[in-house]
Design a protein around this nucleic acid. Sequence first.
DNA 1: CGGGATCCGTTACGATACTG
DNA 2: CAGTATCGTAACGGATCCCG
Lengths: 223, 223
Amino acid sequence: MANRSYGQYCGLALALDRIGDRWTLLIVRELLPGPARFGELHQALPGIATNLLSRRLRDLEEAGLLERTTLPAPANVPVYELTALGRGLGPAVREISLWGVRFMEDAEFRRPANPRSMIMGMSVLASTLPLEGLDSTLHLLVDGYDISIVIDGEKAAFSLGAPTEPDALIETDYEPLVAVVNGRATPDELIADGQIVIGGDADAVVSFFELFRRARESMTVSA
Amino acid sequence: MANRSYGQYCGLALALDRIGDRWTLLIVRELLPGPARFGELHQALPGIATNLLSRRLRDLEEAGLLERTTLPAPANVPVYELTALGRGLGPAVREISLWGVRFMEDAEFRRPANPRSMIMGMSVLASTLPLEGLDSTLHLLVDGYDISIVIDGEKAAFSLGAPTEPDALIETDYEPLVAVVNGRATPDELIADGQIVIGGDADAVVSFFELFRRARESMTVSA
DNA sequence: CGGGATCCGTTACGATACTG
DNA sequence: CAGTATCGTAACGGATCCCG
């Protein structure tokens, strides 16, 4: 389809001529937080064939959405990095994701392919609402991956890696976390039976779960 | 692909499982302004095969994005209409289009498939900027299609059909209009050689072209 | 005539194997 | 590790035919 254009003089059609192929937008998603290597992309995209991945990367490079560069020494490894044009897809990816998160509830459970997609999912949810009254720095440890969450009363920032001075630590696995985020389980019951282990400031922990309770609330209204 | 799921627990992937197929999002675009018949869709989508269109419509119906209904008497014709879930794609379609309009400049010229896509393109462009100081109601007659544009100092509203009390009339064809919107030609020169014919309040006409000049300006900055 | 369904050649995708 | 090559399968595209 990369070569199979819709031939329509329309912003949407011209965009889809470039990003409408299967896998393409997921590749962009993986690259949005920063450059990645071929192997990382292959691992993050469940079951994409290597030939297809390399073809998509070449198409995206020709379309000017990404560049194949080499990390500075001593790394010296080839990576794929979005150009300004590619990064410009951020808002579009966000809106599509926001529309899509409502299906997570009904989806037969699957674990996120990687912590990045988990971060993106939570960010997208959190970005929909004001966060007055919530203020804390959290260390989320999901299935061994460190995630840092900084809520500053206005917005919540999610990133890979452990925060320096967390108010609280939340240690759990994908499944219970997703259940809570979706509202299929309450934090209290999962904490009680040990599926979620918390430490540090109890109020900070509460504010984390409160965030997603609000997000769900605002979604059911607008949907 | 409708059945070929990415299997990723991620908002973007779940969304693309539903709208990632070829043609699907263009069908949604056509239905966003209102219900349409099978034949209208077939005509609006350049060269989609009828079997593919009917399959997409069935998939979209099963996914709950649209409904097949019958217009009230005396029309009594079957139409396809977006559900609330389908209309929820509006912001996503808008963001993708906004990313895509930048390619209209370089695209080898093609005429819009239909006035609706032209309206969407102009709406998307106009929605990016504040419109202080611009205030007018315009009757745009493009290639025989009536388009109404109401600019109220805050936003510009585009719709099919002629306005009741236009301040001005702009009569032209797709090509010169697109050239002006893209900045490849100035309104003055096209008015001078008769490719654009104007009538009514000259200030209102100027405000229309000024709108797109501002839109282009804001795009080159943010891009 | 509008609204599809059927058939068939072509293209894209997916899995595995293989190479620099 | 980072891809390329090969090949079977599924989806797409165009035309034609069917049915109310």
